[in-house]
Design a protein around this nucleic acid. Structure first.
Lengths: 345, 345
DNA sequence: TTTAGCACTCATCGCAATCGACTGCTAACC
DNA sequence: GGTTAGCAGTCGATTGCGATGAGTGCTAAA
């Protein structure tokens, strides 16, 4: 995992120190400041090194008489170093316990995103599986007043319900039998497959040799036709938005908030973004490495999980100048916790 | 509804024009500008009048050589005048139709808040009933894998579900019978009453002359014990946050956003706030009239609804400098639409 | 009571001077 | 060759100041 082999060890240490300092204080780092941090060299030497690092594209000067700020490439080297040096994240048994107590997948993911946000002081998110990879488990029809029917659908994604108002009237026992029939028929199939099957069989209705089944399918169709094809996404930490902006000038902070609030609303864009990030396991994507031009100033730390038939991702989104070490550890330990919880469910 | 009787008609007209101008342009209004709007008097006269209005607390000067800005009292007079002159809001049949299509109360209120936000370009909200005023309708237990049970609770508030993992094992038919028993037993009671009854009967378990009922109550207890005592609240329009701030200086806009984002997170505070507003029907509360010191610069336009056993409120929150006329009409027509929808459900 | 005229106030803008935090470069040094 | 002290140079940030102009309050006349 060690890229950038051309860079001497000392330069690399200095660059890391610079990145850390910038992350901590948010101001351009000067040669004098670095010299005071005990590298055994003077500020003049550091100036030479910094000039070289700038030539190589790792750092950048906002203006001639200013210190240096890491570029995305600089962050990249810093993060790569973190990832290669890193020990396995210490487990967080307390958090895992709390996740385990949450019943449905929805609740688990909601908790997870909340936990990530709380610990990282950034916006945390968790994303579940799409209909393609969600497995149908159970269906139940509950009669309500006035001929309406409550449909309860249980799948690996969790439980969803919906009230439908069918044209025909169904008796209580009929509903019960229909649900039983559909459950045994489709148990173990993906939701997408179930939906396809239902459409298919309805179109060739004559093949349905039993009136009960025909009615069952008509009832089921309204449940499955409107299934959201996108995976659920949980986002937490909107209130931290304005903390990230503190210390910087108001106009920048405002722009940052705008972008992120818009992102939060356009959840689908975030889903798309995460789909694009192909890497398995823990991944860090920094600023310009993201395709979306609006997100040039943000970084994404994500980790996929895939256990017990459930797949998805958890992660953090924040400014490129974020505490990567902390974020990486939190995301990693959370995704491991989710793995374990799903494994034993 | 006409307060401030001491104010001459002409002064009042001028004040209204000033408020409208300020709402529209967001800049202090000068005597010259007002003179150009055809009151038949010169700017000098207007200056005299404005000086008097300032003395009476209706307007305020940011600094000596600036125009006038309405105070909260000024807004109050303007709004009172609007309310007394106002015709009944024109109905919005399209919106009502859309609301009617939404099945559950949750969906109706969610739609309503969204509609309010969209139409008013402010943050819209809708708030439902608390457990005290929600009526129990129906209960269903659905067996899942590994002894877990899905509890589906239908009430006037909508449908909620929950997975419980009971210590005992229940058969499918037993669950069915238990649900039927509990449903017939409690149908029509408020959720709060149901909860109280269950606790009571469990504590005096010996009075339960039937093992089935005893088990049914134990199962039901876990469903009802954790019922959220607070009413549901739906908030929409967060993305409009930054539109309100545009045009003003970034620091102010940032502060505004901070406050509102925090409000959105602390939903309970908003609920409390709404409870404090006692007035029936349409109410406008302006800036300092709100107790909360953080909300000094915001106004609230709300309207209660109460039909078909459901009570609650819908409304708009925005800066004191908001388009009151528009907000009032929207909130009023929406709350009437909700009234009608609930009436015929 | 209204109005014209006028002096006065005060935020805003542009501009020049100053300050100071850093750098880049050169020349000496190990 | 790498390192360091010293110094000139750059450029953003801050400060001070005068001009500008929008808008008021006041006074005296209509």
């Amino acid at each position: 995992m060690t890229r950038h082999p051309e860079l001497p060890e000392r330069d690399r240490r200095i660059l890391s120190a610079l990145v850390q300092a910038y992350i901590e204080h948010g101001e351009p780092v000067s040669s004098l400041w670095l010299a005071s941090r005990g590298f055994g060299v003077s500020s003049a030497t550091l100036r030479n090194i910094l000039a070289r690092l700038e030539e190589q594209g790792y750092v950048h000067q906002p203006h001639t008489s200013a210190g240096r700020v890491p570029t995305d490439l600089g962050y990249r080297l810093y993060v790569d170093q973190l990832l290669s040096d890193r020990r396995v994240a210490r487990p967080a048994p307390l958090v895992e316990e709390r996740l385990r107590k949450a019943g449905t997948i929805d609740e688990i993911l909601s908790h997870a995103s909340h936990e990530i946000s709380r610990a990282s002081h950034q916006i945390g998110f968790a994303i579940g599986a799409s209909v393609e990879s969600t497995i149908f488990e159970h269906l139940e029809f509950v009669p309500l007043d006035a001929g309406k029917v409550l449909v309860v659908l249980v799948s690996t994604r969790g439980i969803t319900h919906k009230v439908v108002d069918p044209a025909e009237v169904y008796s209580g026992t009929e509903l019960h039998e229909a649900a039983n029939y559909l459950t045994t028929e489709f148990k173990g199939c993906s939701l997408a497959a179930v939906r396809a099957q239902i459409v298919e069989r309805l179109q060739a209705e004559q093949t349905l040799y039993d009136a009960l089944m025909a009615r069952a399918f008509r009832l089921a169709s309204s449940t499955f036709e409107a299934l959201d094809p996108q995976p659920a996404i949980y986002i937490q930490g909107t209130s931290l938005l304005f903390e990230l902006g503190s210390g910087e000038d108001p106009a920048t902070a405002l722009a940052t908030m705008k972008t992120l609030v818009r992102m939060m609303e356009e959840k689908m864009r975030l889903v798309q973004l995460l789909d694009d990030i192909s890497g398995a396991g823990l991944t860090v994507v920094i600023g310009s490495e993201l395709v979306d031009p609006e997100l040039q100033h943000f970084s994404l730390v994500t980790s996929r999980y895939a256990r017990g038939g459930r797949i998805g991702a958890v992660g953090v989104i924040g400014p490129t100048r974020m505490r990567y070490l902390r974020a990486i550890n939190i995301v990693d330990s959370l995704s491991r916790a989710i793995d374990r919880v799903f494994e034993t469910t």
